[in-house]
Amino acid sequence: MSKKYIDITLSIFFIILAVLLYRSTASFPKSALFTTAVYIKFLASMLGIAGVIQLISSFMSDASVKVIFAKNPKKFFILILSLILYVWIIRYLGFIISTLIFLPVTMRYMGYHKFRKSIIISAGITLFVYVLFVKIFEIQLPEATILFGASL
């Protein structure tokens, strides 16, 4: 992806954000008009100015400079997806089950192909976190709500 065009898009986004932020202070109550509203206007103005400078320098920059977000896009997107799925299923399956699914699957897709070892490592990490948080420090972890309606 060309860095120049992403920089231009981001600069425009920051300028719009600055305008919206500045305008939002108009609805502030009287008690904040001469204190925090001024502070927010100050931040908005600074962001607007910095955004314009960044926009100008982005227009003047070399379009051939590319940004590489991930050298291995497959692994990169799988990790993002697996994290989102992990956070989603943890609400329903609780910490233990979802972690026991997340760990070996993620390890596998990140390039660890020793299946047995990955299961043992996953179980070890899950047990370690559970004992450390729940048993030793008495910190609650997400509980399974869909399967048993009780903690797991």
């Binding site: 956070v87 390039g111 990490i125």
Partner: peptide, 30 residues
């Protein structure tokens, strides 16, 4: 790196949850 990535991800998710027992915080973290 494959083991490290998976393990740290779990610690990050659980760590951000445990501060306020909040899934909202986990979403915020991501």
């Amino acid at each position: 790196a494959s083991i490290l990535i998976a393990a740290i991800s779990v610690f990050a998710v659980i760590g951000s949850y445990a501060i306020n027992n909040s899934m909202f915080d986990v979403g915020l973290m991501l």
